[in-house]
Simulated assay, not measured.
Amino acid sequence: LDLSWEANVPWDNFQYGIFKRDNSTGNYQPLDTVSTSSYVDSGLTNGVEYCYFVESFGTYSSPTLPEPLLNLSQKNCAKPLDTIPPCNPELTVSNFCENIQQKSETSCDLSSEDLRNNLSWSVEDGTCLDDIYKYEIYFNPPSDSSPNLIETVNDPYDTTYTHYLEESIAGCYKVVAVDSFDNRSRNPQEKCIDNCPCYLLPNSFTPNDDGANDLYRPFKPYRFIAKVDFKVFNQWGNLIYQTNDPDLNWDGTNMNNGKKVSEGTYYYTCEVYEQRVDGVQKREEPLSGYIELIRGK
């Protein structure tokens, strides 16, 4: 609250004592002493009434007159109304993908504990932190153009959050600081984090109806794959199988006539479409190679 006053007296004032009401007792207590006719009382709670009066100390600058000359103002009360937004938190986001060297992966490991993003943020100590009442966490998945409120943290000193997800960990986050008068930090920082797709294919399978390795499939699990364009060609370059299903599930038959193809080497190409923070994206380099089809009987 900004306090100011004027003294209509014939002498000169040289000092002012400011008194503030103790809301728990109703008694006025000395708050501060100043030499100017204004004062700022900070650290107050929005919507709570605070009351003050001022005692002035003056003099006629004459050695024959007593001093100080005291004068009391009227008592006045007001409620603070804060319209200033809190500081923006500084946000960082991390997940398990940061520790993966994708080009050297020999398996696409993935557990339920990996499907999470770890958020942490900081604000400046002092006035900024004192002004914060709670935090709101917003998440914008790749399939949604607008951020969604996913959590409210009611402790201003709690500056971490773990966001558990189910299929994709790509997306963008914002943390908004909110003060006790519902002012929100403006233009909060956005931090985006991506998936680390992984999709690996074997070089052989044995479709002999023995219940083991009868289907040509990718190594499981694979990670963050939306779809594929998988094609198999025979030695004459004829297309004999095609699917968009990432599980592939080729059983060794020719899709053109439904007959089982013979043992041998077949060539494949596979365009991979990955789940990314910007949506489904086609991988720059397609997979390609040879499949040894072994029937064994």
Rank of each mutant, 00 (worst) to 15 (best):
L215D: 04
C108K: 02
Q275R: 14
N183P: 06
G252E: 09
Y290N: 11
Y164A: 14
V280S: 08
Y241L: 15
C198G: 13
E292N: 11
T127L: 15
R217C: 12
A177E: 03
P141D: 08
L31P: 02
S185C: 07
K20H: 05
N118L: 11
G58M: 00
D2E: 09
K191T: 14
S168T: 11
N8I: 04
Q275F: 10
T64A: 06
F224D: 09
N183C: 11
T33W: 02
C270L: 08
K174N: 11
C270Y: 08
D251S: 15
P66T: 10
L215E: 03
V261Q: 06
Y52T: 01
T45M: 04
F230I: 01
S4R: 01
S180R: 07
S62A: 12
N27F: 07
E105F: 02
E105Y: 05
P218E: 08
L72A: 10
V280A: 14
N154R: 10
D245C: 07
S262A: 15
G47P: 04
Y39A: 00
V9W: 00
A170S: 11
N254F: 12
I169W: 04
S37C: 03
S180I: 11
N187H: 06
I150D: 02
Q29G: 09
T45E: 03
F233I: 11
N257M: 15
S122P: 04
P286S: 14
I84N: 05
N234T: 03
S37D: 05
N46C: 02
L239C: 08
S56E: 01
G43I: 06
T127N: 14
E271I: 11
C192F: 06
Y241K: 15
R223Y: 05
T265M: 03
G17C: 03
K297G: 05
L110Y: 04
C87V: 08
S42A: 09
A212N: 08
Q74H: 06
S4Y: 00
C77A: 10
M255F: 10
N27G: 15
E90R: 02
P156A: 13
D179Q: 04
V176T: 03
D209T: 11
K297H: 12
N117L: 07
L72Y: 03
K297F: 08
R283C: 10
Q101D: 10
C198A: 11
Y266R: 13
D210A: 12
C97K: 06
C108E: 06
P66L: 15
T92F: 02
L201S: 09
H163I: 12
D41R: 02
G26S: 12
N99E: 09
K79Y: 06
V280T: 05
Y268M: 03
L81T: 10
E124H: 12
D41F: 00
V34L: 12
A7E: 02
L65F: 05
G237P: 03
W236T: 13
D278C: 14
T64S: 01
Y50T: 09
T253S: 15
K231D: 02
P246Q: 06
K259W: 00
W11G: 07
N257A: 15
S38D: 02
